[in-house]
Design a protein around this nucleic acid. Sequence first.
DNA 1: AAAATTTTTATTATATATAAAAAATATTTT
DNA 2: AAAATATTTTTTATATATAATAAAAATTTT
Lengths: 181, 181
Amino acid sequence: MEPKINIVNVVVSTKIGDDIDLEHVADVLDNAEYEPEQFPGLVCRLNDPRVALLIFRSGKLNCTGAKSKEEAEIAIKKVIKQLKEAGFDIEEDPEIKVQNMVATAELGTEPNLDRISTLEGTEYEPEQFPGLVYRMEDPKVVVLIFGSGKIVITGLKREEDAYRALENVLNMLKELKEIKG
Amino acid sequence: MEPKINIVNVVVSTKIGDDIDLEHVADVLDNAEYEPEQFPGLVCRLNDPRVALLIFRSGKLNCTGAKSKEEAEIAIKKVIKQLKEAGFDIEEDPEIKVQNMVATAELGTEPNLDRISTLEGTEYEPEQFPGLVYRMEDPKVVVLIFGSGKIVITGLKREEDAYRALENVLNMLKELKEIKG
DNA sequence: AAAATTTTTATTATATATAAAAAATATTTT
DNA sequence: AAAATATTTTTTATATATAATAAAAATTTT
């Protein structure tokens, strides 16, 4: 039985133009919110795919909330189409880079967080936050481990690293004799 | 369609004896916790029915967490049986009084809490607590109204008052034109 | 004399912590 | 004054606590 990894959030960035008039964009994009004194980026929310896009005056763009890089690309294409139709000078097929992914997984056992917290690279303050924070070196990600056995892996650039990170956590539990080898 | 009321908690009180040695009770009752410097009552938790009983030196007893008066009675009978078997001088069939009931219900609409908060008898401080507090005069209960349309009625002595309280809230919404009359 | 202690229960917003990009502003350190 | 961080926003899973409500009991503290 293969360990199951669920990608729950993908953050990507790209560049769709130069010196974009965000006030103008706010008028032509229907789900746009632009409050420059609060944040320099314009926020645009799509329902399908369900994501949030941040567009900056520089032409740089972030997309958050997608379940895959492909989903983020579809969302970005949608916004590009709308902006081109409104007459903006926009890059049609920009290079999209994954900046972060968040994954969830299950350990299949209920770990003793107090025992794990004796290891290096871990932080565990249950009255501040119920999850143990494990900063892994290779792959360079952060894993949140919960008493339920559920874990959250974040800081991912590639999906395959989620499997390596989960393997590392399982091996760590074996060494702590939390799981039979 | 009849409005649906769910009784989620019933608190009852009774008196099962006089001058009870709680230290002794703590020894013979298996799920008992007795920490007199923390609280003068002995706490006993049952799994079936799932309730908590507080027993006091005076012989007075509270039962919380039951879903009905009958469930509370069954729980109390169970504890009485155990205490009698341990040799305590205990009342076998004491009078049980409902002191409080908590009910939940649904309004069937998502109310505007800000508008309701203009009415007398209401308190609404969303950053302190998300529910609006409505102190009703007749029946004398407190209703918590949430933005989801779910409500909590507490301070109930009789189940029928829950229906009257719900009716009152629905009428109030009609007058505020939150619901079509 | 009044308030806190404990127990139960539904309700739900918010805070807590994690990573990452973007750019503008606000502190902080040099 | 200049350079260097920190905060702002967005998303997402995870899971705790806390906020307020009523009621009884008896003890301690205010």
